[in-house]
């Protein structure tokens, strides 16, 4: 470019040409600038993710649920929108304790063998046949750690969204009337989860 420019300026015979060459070059450059600006805009748009996080709750262990709800209530307190997706074994954590429903054999077995709701969850370690969670809960109370039930209440209050995987419900034979009362609790599938996760800032698998 510099060479051409100099050559053009030095050579008087080239006098009528510059405007033509410069104009072409200028047009090319301004087109390029417009292109890059458009690309920069679209990049900025995709980078501006919403202030929300998504937690995929797969497990029904008390310790894991405590971690999930600590993050959920903490994030909600920081003004972040939170979605909890309960799937597979996790769905059992949202059951109510005494609901009678008509079920098939397998559904009855799952219902019988999986924990009935937040108060009956095992620990992923040191469960000791159910002694572990009892001791853990007592210790938590002593140490001022919020119980799972308190955190569920806080989540409700702070507007944490809870969705339940419909496939897991179907597979394990859980019915909507067996699940806890929670504002806007919805049953959904993988598309809902992926859409919400992809537009959020963080997704964790618990």
């Amino acid at each position: 470019m510099g060479v051409t420019e100099e050559a053009l300026l030095d050579d008087p015979s080239a006098e009528p040409q510059p405007s033509g060459v410069f104009e072409t070059e200028l047009r090319r450059l301004s087109q390029r600038v417009a292109e890059l600006e458009a690309r920069q805009h679209s990049l900025a748009r995709s980078a501006a993710q919403e202030d929300k996080i998504t937690l995929l709750v797969f497990s029904n262990s008390l310790d894991r649920l405590l971690a999930a709800f600590t993050m959920a209530t903490g994030a909600a307190a920081m003004g972040t929108r939170v979605s909890l997706f309960f799937t597979f074994w996790g769905t059992a954590a949202l059951r109510r304790e005494n609901v009678q429903t008509k079920k098939s054999l397998f559904a009855r077995l799952f219902g019988w063998m999986l924990p009935k709701g937040s108060r009956n969850l095992p620990l992923s370690q040191l469960n000791m046949g159910g002694m572990g969670p009892l001791m853990m809960r007592r210790l938590m109370k002593q140490k001022g750690v919020a119980s799972l039930e308190e955190m569920l209440a806080l989540s409700r209050e702070l507007g944490v969204n809870i969705s339940v995987c419909s496939m897991s419900m179907d597979l394990l034979g859980f019915q909507p009337q067996e699940m806890i009362e929670y504002p806007n609790l919805t049953y959904c599938g993988v598309a809902t989860f992926l859409e919400r996760a992809a537009t959020g800032k963080m997704t964790l698998f618990v």
């Binding site: 600590t70 209530t73 903490g74 909600a76 307190a77 920081m78 003004g79 140490k143 001022g144 750690v145 919020a146 806080l154 209050e157 702070l158």
Partner: peptide, 15 residues
């Protein structure tokens, strides 16, 4: 006082 994470910030947000 006597409350452990995340309660201090959650209660602060609420208050």
């Amino acid at each position: 006082r006597g409350k452990s994470c995340p309660l201090p910030i959650v209660l602060t947000a609420k208050a």
